[in-house]
Write a protein that binds this DNA or RNA. Structure first.
Length: 295
DNA sequence: ACTGTACCCTGTAGGC
DNA sequence: TGCCTACAGGGTACAG
């Protein structure tokens, strides 16, 4: 589930539950997820107040009153769920519906907040992780030091992409999947953005730059496409794939608008295009594109 | 410096 | 029903 729009959705859902609340108790049910939690993880959280909650790339960052930052990454299968004891209908967050009778096997961390809310982190594949990092050392931390620009911020521009792509030999797909270039894009949104821009994932990344190093029209189109695809996905609450559906409509619905992702063999999602969606593999990841309108 | 591959881990879908 | 393989939205370590 978690690329930028999904992490943003989770951030927005957790914010009212976490900001201003303190960690009353913390259950840490394993020594590690993808990485060890670090020394005294629980002790450093208990009593701390959450001052801020924000997203950077695919990371959730909770700024604490202790001066540390709780860094959370959802990996491939990580989810948060909120349980409000006073409200029967508030058990949902993002695309996840909490079923207290099932699937608790992979509940690895539980935050009991001073507000009474219980926030559970569930992650079957355990590719996600949590760490505590001093706030003033975040930018220098190995996880963040090399991150590229935020695609929804002002730093993403055709000039930026052109400069990064000019000396590249890789494909456009690999280029956009690289978090050092644009931070937060993942497999779904790279496929969808390239389709939106009418660009083949197989094309060389260097096509974004002309001989003088200036951005091409393709780069301009790509920037617009990335922004539009992500903005729309955020507005729709992200994408929900093979997960629980939320009957109240709070789950993501962007997957219903996929033009190419996961649609191999089907007709292209572009109006007026009757091309078929092809599946290929880049760096071991499935890629979907229309052979007709993506050039 | 760059690029692609193998790998981390569990669950699920599909073929036989 | 079971067994097997391939695949899944993440990132990293390593070889070439």
């Amino acid at each position: 589930m978690p690329e930028l729009p999904e992490v943003e959705t989770v951030c927005q859902g957790l914010a009212p539950q976490m900001i201003g609340a303190t960690f009353r108790t913390v259950e840490q049910r394993r020594a590690n997820l993808r990485f060890p939690f670090g020394r005294d993880f629980k002790a450093r959280l208990v009593g701390a107040e959450v001052a801020t909650l924000r997203r950077r790339a695919k990371y959730l960052l909770a700024g604490l009153s202790t001066g540390e930052c709780l860094v959370m990454h959802l990996g491939m299968s990580g989810r948060f769920l909120v349980h409000q004891p006073r409200s029967k209908s508030a058990d949902t967050l993002g695309d996840y519906i909490y079923d207290s009778g099932a699937n608790t096997k992979h509940d690895h961390v539980v935050f009991h907040m001073s507000s009474g809310a219980t926030i559970t982190y569930n992650d079957p594949r355990r590719f996600g992780f949590m760490l505590l990092v001093p706030e003033n050392m975040l930018d220098d931390h190995a996880l963040f030091r090399h991150l590229g620009v935020e695609p929804l911020g002002n730093e993403l521009s055709a000039i930026y992409l052109s400069a990064k792509a000019s000396a590249r030999r890789s494909s456009l797909k690999s280029f956009l999947m690289d978090q050092r270039i644009v931070a937060g894009l993942g497999n779904i949104y790279v496929c969808e953005a390239l389709h939106h821009a009418g660009l083949s994932p197989n094309r060389a990344a260097a096509c974004l730059s002309d001989r003088l190093g200036n951005p091409t029209a393709r780069a301009e189109r790509l920037v617009i496409a990335i922004r539009e695809v992500l903005q729309k996905a955020v507005a729709l609450g992200g994408s929900t794939l093979r997960n629980y559906r939320d009957p109240s409509g709070a789950s993501g619905s962007f997957q219903e608008t996929f033009a190419v992702y996961g649609r191999a063999g089907e007709v292209c999602g572009r109006k007026g295009c009757d091309g078929l969606v092809k599946r290929s593999v880049h760096q071991g990841r499935s890629t979907f594109h229309c052979g007709r309108c993506q050039r």
